[in-house]
Design a protein around this nucleic acid. Structure first.
Lengths: 333, 333
DNA sequence: TTGTACGCGTTATCAG
DNA sequence: CTGATAACGCGTACAA
């Protein structure tokens, strides 16, 4: 592949001059510039991003660490990030961490080796300390879907406690009193906080949420099916199911219907996330809207901005609050 | 960030020695090796991937060009690729091309600038010639979901004509004779080939597929809804709908049901792709399994293999054939 | 306006 | 076993 040197030779000028026209540098004669451009074109010249990164000490690329690309939630996340990087002509380095400490660590490590000063990371397995340390090393380090007070201005996150409260509040307003919860078995903060929110709201209304009314399983459709089966097997009475996410909610509806239980008339179901899926299942899922895409774009902008020298404002954080999307799976009792 | 030089100074040895221990080079004293390793650890040394790529002329990274990350199909594709790259410790450079010539071109351009010798690209907008040219430049260039005879050994693709035939054949076997097709309005090869397959099979059975029985729309749920609405509005009679993909099929079912038409008893519906979605909708979607993930893994392996010097075998190609997955949306007539 | 020369962090070749 | 030293492709003071 042609280098800057080849171009210089072909054009009979020096490296410096070529470099200047590449970067729209200031002092180059109009004629020379045109001639060189033409030659670059003919020879199919492409700047070597690696060499550039080396001398510039910055790489025009954004590192991304996600948990699981095939999950619609993360796919949407990736999509949002991609949208803003494309606008800014920035390349994405993508890694998947699958919620395991070592893999996440490894993913970030690789990004570090590539010297990308901007990164958007979704980490649940790494501890606060590690992440805070990272934020110190990487100027454009931004966390998505996680809040750590010490680096609040690098966190783009959803208020899960508020989300839990909103779910519960809505169900209460619809007259539901016998409530079951199906949640994720992964003991990361999200499920814990959502349940906490639900509990708070319920207790405020004088209703207890016994542990027996909560089932834990994998946060996917199958998990939702299993969780509800367990609930049913225990002979639990409930008129409302609050799910950890839309996939679980969908699985829950399937099983309920298989048992001849009408959704939403006998049992109402509410999801969380509002991913694509929510519109596909029947009845259409009432759920909490998690503005993933917007948040992802914000996170990417932030990372890029910090990386290019803008200092993170102290004291701010980027908190989002989920809102109810009313569809068909919840009904007044 | 500490460089190899810093380490050398701190250890009182030369650059070369440090470099040797980093790469597990052959001739270094055991004691020296341990000492240097310890120092690297203390100083938090990380090799600079850019510098490495520069001197090695190879980048240990795989470029990926997809159309639309938020689409479950592409999300699964990405997931498959990620799985194999992770195993091989290779970094992914991801770009999204959104099926527009210029964006796709730009995406590849950027990858080229990063000098990644391995790429898996999903391109529908670029013409054969461009792609063939690219294959000449990039040793590990692999196309996914596209077949170009001249570079057959770099193509991992699905036989869409066979897919179309399979759909039609199955519907015929179930006694359907009045058949409608809802397809993608994007005139890329996939929809054309699938329809061709359908037509061939039908004609073999002495059944014509008039153009009026085909509706084109966007290849998503909404498009499926619109397409079926149009069919209905035209007063078409049909007992079977063959959809371009699962999303369209799902939309179709929704509209049919909204019109009080029973699926599958009055109208059977078949999808294509077998993405997540197919299991979520009700009735569960009978569809054609597109082994995206397997194919993606294959493509990634191939790209990496070619990139590391293995020459593409002449004469071979990587063709996959979709198979029917029977669920609930098709019924015997 | 153009050219020279050095440095970015690594690897690899050749001497010692 | 270890150390100089020359690339790799590019950007940029500093000269001319």
């Amino acid at each position: 592949m042609a280098t800057i040197k080849d171009i210089a030779n072909a054009a009979g000028v020096s490296l410096a001059t070529v470099s200047r026209v590449i970067n729209d540098g200031p002092k180059v004669g109009k004629a020379t510039r045109e001639r060189i451009k033409k030659i670059m074109d003919e020879m199919g010249y492409r700047p070597n991003a690696n060499a550039r990164a080396l001398v510039n000490k910055r790489s025009a690329s954004l590192g991304v660490v996600l948990a699981e690309l095939s999950d619609p939630f993360f796919a949407t996340l990736a999509h949002g990030i991609e949208a803003t990087t494309r606008k800014q002509g920035v390349q994405i380095l993508m890694s998947s961490g699958s919620i395991e400490r070592e893999t996440e660590r490894q993913a970030i490590e690789t990004l570090l080796e590539h010297r990308c000063e901007a990164m958007v990371v979704h980490s649940k397995a790494l501890d606060d300390e590690t992440l805070i340390d990272l934020a110190g090393q990487v100027p454009g380090f931004v966390l998505i879907n996680r809040y750590i007070p010490e680096i609040a201005n690098r966190c783009v996150w959803l208020d899960n406690v508020a989300g839990g409260r909103a779910m519960a509040k809505y169900m209460l307003s619809q007259g539901h009193r016998d409530i079951a919860v199906i949640s994720s078995r992964y003991q990361i903060e999200d499920p814990v906080q959502r349940i906490q929110g639900i509990r708070e709201e319920l207790e405020q209304a004088g209703i207890a949420l016994p542990d027996a009314n909560i089932e834990y399983s994998t946060p996917d459709q199958e998990g939702g099916e299993i969780a509800v089966q367990n609930l049913l097997a225990k002979g639990k009475q409930f008129t409302a199911v609050l799910a950890y996410n839309d996939a679980m909610a969908s699985g829950a509806m399937t099983i309920l219907q298989d048992h001849g239980i009408d959704v939403p008339n006998e049992v109402s179901v509410i999801g969380y996330d509002d991913v694509l899926l929510a519109k596909y299942c029947r009845p259409k899922l009432t759920t909490l809207r998690y503005p993933v895409e917007v948040m992802a774009m914000r996170a990417a902008e932030l990372a890029l901005s910090y990386a290019s020298g803008n200092r993170p404002e102290p004291g701010v954080t980027f908190k989002y609050t989920p809102t109810i999307v009313k569809r068909e799976s919840v009904v007044k009792r």
